[in-house]
């Protein structure tokens, strides 16, 4: 065997060893979801067992599981849709009609993201209580939309900036107005970018746990809060917890894997591409 081959094999062993260790908690959770409650707590841990869907059946049979899942879907997709509707025009004007103030506006938007949620917990809680938004899908949707708006604007801005101005100007020469220009030229051209922006916003909303734990109790509680309820004595049902957790993270893990490349831009505000 030549030395480069040996090196490659050693690298493969090392990298895969680390990857498997890092992934182990997730793997173990998925595996435990297919065990019976008895096997889930068995010592020594059983690696080979007869898989059962009992955990999944119990979770799905709980009438409220679907309610939590539905809340997560409505809130994260709703907030993303709202954020995109507000952000697309803003990012469009920043990318194609830049002024001296554009950079300042962008940085200011980024700065709103620096306000720690715990710093404004009290006012938001009290405002929501007075407006009847506590424990409502609408309330959490609004918070997540505002939470993600700066990232969405930034990400769209970096994608829009990559589109040559000539293309839009050619459209304009053909008599396209701003609305047509955005709908028929810009959106189709940047669809992959918009999709990954949307997915990032969905991921962040789906996984957000500070506001969901503090602003909801039961009616509008999303999956983060549902999983957190297992931290009480009910957490003893590990197979059930694992099944519920697997269901809760599976879609997001897939979204994350799909968009990881473009996501780096959004997460670093364009500083790393």
């Amino acid at each position: 065997m030549n030395p480069t081959m040996t090196k490659k094999l050693l690298l493969t062993l090392l990298a895969w060893g680390i990857a498997l260790i890092v992934f182990f908690p997730i793997f173990w959770m998925i595996l435990t979801g297919f065990k019976t409650e008895g096997e889930a707590v068995a010592t020594p841990p059983s690696l080979f067992f007869e898989p059962t869907l009992a955990g999944y059946h119990t979770v799905m049979a709980r009438a409220d599981y679907l309610k939590f899942a539905l809340n997560s879907i409505v809130i994260s997709f709703g907030s993303t849709l709202l954020a995109l509707i507000v952000a697309i025009p803003a990012a469009y004007s920043m990318a194609f009609l830049p002024t001296k103030r554009t950079q300042g506006t962008l940085l200011w938007m980024l700065s709103t993201k620096m306000l720690p949620p715990v710093g404004v917990l009290m006012p938001v809680y009290l405002l929501f209580r007075d407006m009847g938004l506590l424990d409502s899908q609408l309330g959490l949707t609004i918070v997540y939309m505002l939470m993600n708006l700066p990232i969405v604007v930034w990400m769209l801005y970096t994608f829009f900036k990559d589109i040559p101005k000539d293309i839009l100007e050619a459209g304009r020469m053909d008599g396209a107005g701003t609305v047509q220009e955005v709908l028929y030229l810009l959106l189709p051209l940047t669809l992959p970018g918009i999709a990954s922006t949307g997915l990032l916003s969905v991921i962040l909303s789906w996984n957000e746990a500070f506001w969901s734990l503090n602003l909801t109790t039961s009616d509008a509680a999303p999956l983060t809060a549902f999983i957190a309820s297992f931290s009480s004595p009910e957490g003893l049902f590990w197979a059930k917890l694992s099944a519920a957790s697997t269901l809760a993270i599976a879609p997001i893990l897939i979204f994350g894997w799909m968009t990881q490349k473009q996501m780096v831009r959004g997460l670093t505000f364009g500083a790393v591409k």
Partner: peptide, 11 residues
């Protein structure tokens, strides 16, 4: 190896 970043913190 990047998977844990996408896992809900409560999970």
């Amino acid at each position: 190896v990047i998977a844990p970043f996408f896992v809900m913190p409560t999970v």
